[in-house]
């Protein structure tokens, strides 16, 4: 069992219902369990398919039995599928040592489209995400997935980017092995393509 840089290691995966949030956290958690760690995951997805905010907390420890929720300010890594949701989570769970990887493509809440609420400017959101963390990488995961053939692979593209972060507990090779165990045929091909492009987007430096 590799020694963890942080114990417990706390990761938040956040986004909007239907973006593949739960799958991403489950893939991470299973990989850490099979490596012998204690894993706890808490999924908050009341409105999973109905456009609400969704988050998963993934917690890993060498020794401790953990609760399924992360205390505020104690997430070391944040994976965000949407900028507003990333900021919402960063504001509660990030600390000055946190690393964030997120898709900067906005999805407007219905209140914003109806004109009753305001969606902050993307530059304001980006600045705030950076201010709340040690490093933040913007990865156009939905676009990468659409280019690879299906927007639904955005979660896999973001997982690819995640493996390239300093402090990521799993390597590119670890996750590639898991993908080929879980998927078959054209879905596997799509996911491999999206995953590779996700990895490259941060190798190239991203938007740190």
């Amino acid at each position: 069992m590799k020694k963890l840089k942080f114990d417990p290691l706390n990761i938040v995966v956040c986004g909007i219902g239907g973006q593949g949030n739960v799958l991403a956290s489950e893939v991470l958690g299973s990989a850490m369990t099979s490596r012998g760690y204690h894993v706890a995951i808490g999924e908050t997805y009341g409105a999973s398919q109905r456009g609400g905010s969704v988050m998963s907390h993934v917690r890993v420890s060498e020794t401790q039995e953990l609760s399924v929720l992360i205390p505020s300010g104690e997430a070391q890594l944040i994976i965000g599928f949407e900028p507003l949701e990333t900021l919402r989570i960063a504001r509660k769970y990030a600390n000055p040592d946190s690393t964030i990887v997120y898709d900067p493509r906005p999805v407007y809440p219905s209140g914003v489209l109806q004109g009753s609420r305001n969606y902050p400017g993307l530059d304001e959101i980006t600045a705030a995400i950076h201010a709340l963390s040690a490093a933040a990488y913007a990865v156009p995961a939905a676009q990468i997935a659409m280019d690879a053939g299906d927007a639904r692979a955005a979660n896999i593209a973001l997982l690819g980017a995640f493996t390239q972060l300093p402090g990521a507990p799993l390597s590119r090779e670890d996750l590639e092995a898991i993908l080929s165990q879980r998927f078959r045929g054209p879905v596997l091909e799509l996911n491999q393509k999206a995953f590779a492009r996700g990895c490259e987007s941060v190798e190239k430096g991203g938007d740190a």
């Binding site: 905010s53 507003l84 949701e85 809440p109 219905s110 305001n118 304001e124 959101i125």
Partner: peptide, 9 residues
């Protein structure tokens, strides 16, 4: 910064 809630729909 004021963040809009995401209503279920």
């Amino acid at each position: 910064l004021d963040l809009p809630e995401r209503e279920m729909t």
